[in-house]
Structures are given as structure tokens and as C-alpha cells.
């Protein structure tokens, strides 16, 4: 039998963090949403009236549609490559001699420790027409070299993958730590080779980590601003760079707010679909979602 104060305690204990959450996230979000419903005039600034004109503008604007498609194309491709690289990478490090694991993890996390500007400048130097990559390709007599790599979606994806892979590695790494190491031996003793052990036993059991990593990478890539701006250039517009442009250059804050709102809604929608369609199914098998299997 719970007393009244017993029931109140959890609420009271979570209140401070709930307040911070509300103050730091919900209130500004509501502000952005409200702002997006206003009009804008170059001379008068933000207009007092309310309406959905900004959204109507966006959804009838082919430039925005193009940017939205590009945003998701880049985020999707980045996520895919990060998974293909990061998941095996985590497993390899997991299987390493413990002496090497620490230094290896540091190497993996390395890109996260470098400022985004420095990192992207590095890629600019590497990917330029006269850059190292093209010099190497030319030296190897690759037909067609030098290629135009900078200011392409490929450059943006490369730049994003570089910094996002650690997120997949770390989240898969955490899942691997919870995996009973004997499972791999059990599978081996039943005749499975290394690859089969990985795909049939390890991978299904670290799916929660893979899914979490994928989700982080997707959301961060879809909302990334600096990397698309620096490696993609102005021609390759993504939603975040359009938002930046409206806020800081055109000073059309309401339109910028509408862009931000649409981007957020789109990411949220993609996330929900992802959890519904993929993650649920993967997690149910592992019994981490509310009792789905036979009791």
C-alpha cells in the first residue's frame, strides 16, 4: 500500500530535471514554433500577425523540396556508411587484446576531439582538385583524375562519416560489453566461422546499440550545419544551411523558424518510423521491449 507521500516522491525527485528540460528545450521550441507563424518585412522586421504563410511558401518551393531531399539523402547515406564501418570496427576492437583497446578507442574517438572547423579545413585540403587525394589518384594514373571532390555531396558524406563513426563504435561497444563472451565460443563449437559468429550471433544481440548509433548519426547528420556548408558549398543547400541563411543573412526569422520546425518535424517523423518499423522488431526478439513474446 503506497502512502500519498510515497507516490509524490518520484515526482518531486524528477521535478528539478523536468524543469531544466522544460526551460532549456520546450520553452525555446515553443518560441520557435510561435515565431514561425509570424510574417516578415524587410523594413519592419517581424510582423505581429499570425498565419501559415511561411509553411505554404516552403511547401510550394521546389528549392526547399530539393534541399530537404538532399538533407535526407546525405543523412541516410552517412548513416549507412557509418554502420558498415562502425559496427565491424567496434567488434574488432572488442576482440583486441585489452592492452590495445584503450589506445584504439582513443584513436576512434579522435575525430570527436577536433573542432569541426579544423576538421573540415583538413578535408578541404585533402579533397581539393590539387589536394592529396587527387595527387595520389593522378600519380596512380587513375583515368579521369583529378576528380572534382570538393563541393559535392560525396565530400559532405565523407566529412560527416569521419566524425559520426565514433558514435556508432561507442554505442555498439557498450552493447558488446553486455554480451556474454561465451556465446561466441558456443557458436564456434557448433561449427560457425568468424563471419557467421558475427552475423548470426553477435550482430543480433548488439542490435540495440546498432539502432541507437544509427539514430544518433541520422539525426545529427540531418541537422548538421558546418560540414555541409564548408565541404558542400553554397550550391548544395541543406535545410540547416537554409535556416542559417534566413536567420543570419536575410534576417527573415519567421521563415527560418518555419524551416527549423519543418526539419525537426521531418527528423522526428523519420525517427518514429524507424523505431516503429525496425527497432521494435529487433528489440522484441531480445526481450527489451514490453513483453512481446510468450510469457
Amino acid at each position: 500500500m503506497m502512502t500519498r507521500s510515497d507516490r509524490l516522491t518520484p515526482a518531486l525527485l524528477t521535478a528539478p530535471s523536468a524543469l531544466v528540460y522544460a526551460g532549456a528545450l520546450l520553452v525555446p521550441l515553443a518560441g520557435v514554433l510561435a515565431l514561425s507563424l509570424h510574417g516578415f518585412d524587410f523594413e519592419k522586421g517581424v510582423l505581429p500577425g499570425w498565419g501559415l504563410a511561411n509553411y505554404q511558401d516552403l511547401f510550394t518551393d521546389p528549392l526547399f523540396g530539393e534541399a530537404l531531399a538532399r538533407t535526407f539523402r546525405i543523412a541516410g547515406l552517412t548513416t549507412l556508411i557509418c554502420l558498415l564501418v562502425g559496427v565491424p570496427e567496434a567488434w574488432i576492437i572488442h576482440r583486441m587484446d585489452p592492452r590495445w583497446r584503450g589506445p584504439m578507442l582513443l584513436v576512434v574517438v579522435g575525430p570527436l576531439l577536433v573542432s569541426v572547423v579544423v576538421r573540415n579545413f583538413g578535408w578541404m585540403v585533402l579533397l581539393g582538385t590539387n589536394g592529396l587525394v587527387n595527387q595520389a589518384l593522378t600519380a596512380l594514373h587513375v583515368p579521369g583524375a583529378p576528380f572534382r571532390l570538393m563541393f559535392t555531396e560525396l565530400a559532405v558524406v565523407i566529412g560527416l562519416v569521419h566524425v559520426m563513426v565514433p558514435l556508432v563504435v561507442l554505442s555498439v561497444w557498450a552493447s558488446l560489453g553486455r554480451l556474454d563472451p561465451v556465446l561466441e565460443r558456443a557458436a564456434t563449437s557448433l561449427g560457425a566461422g568468424r563471419f557467421t559468429v558475427f552475423t548470426r550471433v553477435v550482430l543480433p544481440n548488439v542490435m540495440p546499440g546498432v539502432m541507437a548509433g544509427a539514430l544518433m548519426v541520422f539525426c545529427l547528420s540531418a541537422s548538421a550545419f558546418a560540414t555541409p556548408a564548408m565541404l558542400g558549398g553554397k550550391r548544395l543547400k541543406v535545410v540547416s544551411s537554409m535556416t542559417y541563411n534566413e536567420f543570419l543573412n536575410t534576417l527573415n526569422w519567421p521563415l527560418g523558424a518555419a524551416l527549423a520546425t519543418v526539419l525537426m518535424a521531418a527528423i522526428l517523423l523519420a525517427t518514429l518510423l524507424w523505431t516503429r518499423l525496425v527497432e521494435r522488431r529487433a528489440l522484441r526478439r531480445l526481450g527489451e521491449v514490453a513483453q512481446g513474446g510468450p510469457a
Binding site: 579545413f121 578541404m124 585540403v125 581539393g128 582538385t129 590539387n130 589536394g131 570538393m150 563541393f151 564548408m230 558549398g233 553554397k234 550550391r235
Partner: peptide, 19 residues
């Protein structure tokens, strides 16, 4: 035009790399 580039830092980098 290779790129529309507003940042002076990137502009000078592109000059220096011969891009």
C-alpha cells in the same frame, strides 16, 4: 564558378591551394 564562398578564410585557403 567553382564555389560561391563568403568566408574569407576559405577564400584565402582556396587561393593558397591553387584551387
Amino acid at each position: 564558378v567553382l564555389a560561391y564562398e563568403s568566408s574569407p578564410g576559405k577564400m584565402s585557403e582556396m587561393f593558397q591551394s591553387g584551387e
